[in-house]
């Protein structure tokens, strides 16, 4: 199973050269932090996650988002959050988090059979 050798050569997977110690350079540079960008595409709509980018500070993150994610009039408002501040639920909790709601069909309007004569409901 682990003995996979993928021989496809589109963008993806020309095999990397084997790392030789002299070749394997790691810069010591401290990179700009990563930010998550949320964009409101139209007044009245929610901000939606558009992607991420790097910026040195919050102001620059917003401007980079303007330049990167709104080149085609995609946005009217931008939120930027440094990625490290995003807290996410754990996929391992998915069962206990989300499955208990699957049997509560009575929360949905289609659960109730009403005569056709009832209007506006």
């Amino acid at each position: 199973m682990m003995n996979i050798q993928i021989k496809k050569f589109y963008y993806g997977d020309i095999p990397d050269s084997s790392p030789s110690s002299s070749n394997d350079v790691r810069s010591t540079e401290n990179p700009w932090p990563l930010w998550e960008i949320f964009i409101r595409s139209k007044q009245g709509l929610d901000h939606k996650h558009a992607g991420s980018l790097h910026a040195a500070d919050a102001q620059m993150a917003i401007e980079n988002a303007r330049d990167v994610y709104t080149r085609r009039q995609e946005g009217l408002s931008i939120w930027a959050v440094e990625s490290k501040f995003i807290h996410a639920s754990n996929p391992d909790d998915a069962e206990m988090f989300y499955e208990p709601s699957t049997d509560k069909v009575y929360r949905h309007p289609t659960f109730y059979d009403l005569p056709d004569e009832v209007k506006h409901m």
Partner: peptide, 11 residues
Amino acid sequence: PILEQDIAITN
């Protein structure tokens, strides 16, 4: 100097 700024100055 970095992708984000490459895009910015090109705008």
